[in-house]
Design a protein around this nucleic acid. Structure first.
Lengths: 136, 136
DNA sequence: TTTTCCAATAATAATGATTACGATTTACTA
DNA sequence: TAGTAAATCGTAATCATTATTATTGGAAAA
């Protein structure tokens, strides 16, 4: 997703255009890795030394709820990245060295068949961890 | 896994048999749900009011490292349960209401094919979340 | 442009999970 | 049964995250 599309979604939902918000989005646009709230704060505080955690967390939550960002939990910390452009459902390989991801086109739910009769399935997580060719 | 087998592993690795350790294992043996460190402490403090977090966390980490317990991260908290008996690799459906699990016999890695050439795959996570028939 | 309104932010403080550490106790060994 | 290393206690520190309240700033109306 790019900045323009993100702002379209934000505007549609009545969110104001602020410089901080914009800069957070710019960080994600220019970085394909999964980033933590702290990562964002560290970058932002170069320009805005008084930037607070609250602002970071609040905006990250907003972005996730609007599907501008996607989130996952890696080793106990929430990590965020721009939502994928791809329109089809997919999963991710995540490089534990550089944090970059690669899309995996398959979804295990397709092969589930009748393995869970009478169960209510609300969600699923499939992620592969390792090292990308560059880091190997 | 049962208590006896767990103690076999612990003894093999030079760990001492203590009442606390034993009681933590008993809790897991009698509960098929994923439990948190706090869950364990709450139960233990009925018998040992002075039981400390350190003891709980240290032992949970020990048990996981010896494959006596398995761990997963659910909504930001580490959860633990007895390692499955099944000898074949599998994954879990987890009921977000009661915490009980159901084994899923399939593994998406089998269908991965050549989707990740030149990548080093160290680990993967596949979990399905929802409600079990009892909680639905 | 100025005013006004309300969302957004700053500046903490609080919370909840986890880890750390010196002092003390306990389980095993000889 | 005494010695020793491991285990535990008691407590404090740390780390991520959330909550609170006062203030600021964007945008629309006057």
């Amino acid at each position: 997703m790019n900045l323009q599309k993100a702002w379209g979604i934000l505007k549609e939902n009545g969110f104001k255009e602020t410089t901080k918000r914009n800069q957070i989005l710019e960080i994600f646009e220019g970085d394909e890795r999964y980033l933590t709230a702290r990562d964002i704060l560290d970058v932002m505080q170069k320009d805005y030394p008084s930037m607070s955690y609250d602002t970071v967390y609040r905006n990250l939550a907003t972005f996730v709820s609007l599907d501008i960002l996607e989130a996952t939990e890696l080793s106990g910390e929430k990590h965020f990245r721009m939502h994928c452009e791809s329109d089809h459902h997919h999963h991710h390989f995540i490089c534990m060295d550089c944090g970059k991801i690669k899309e995996i086109p398959l979804c295990p739910m397709d092969m589930l068949g009748a393995a869970l009769p009478a169960y209510e399935i609300d969600n699923h997580k499939f992620e592969i961890y390792g090292k990308c060719p560059d880091c190997k």
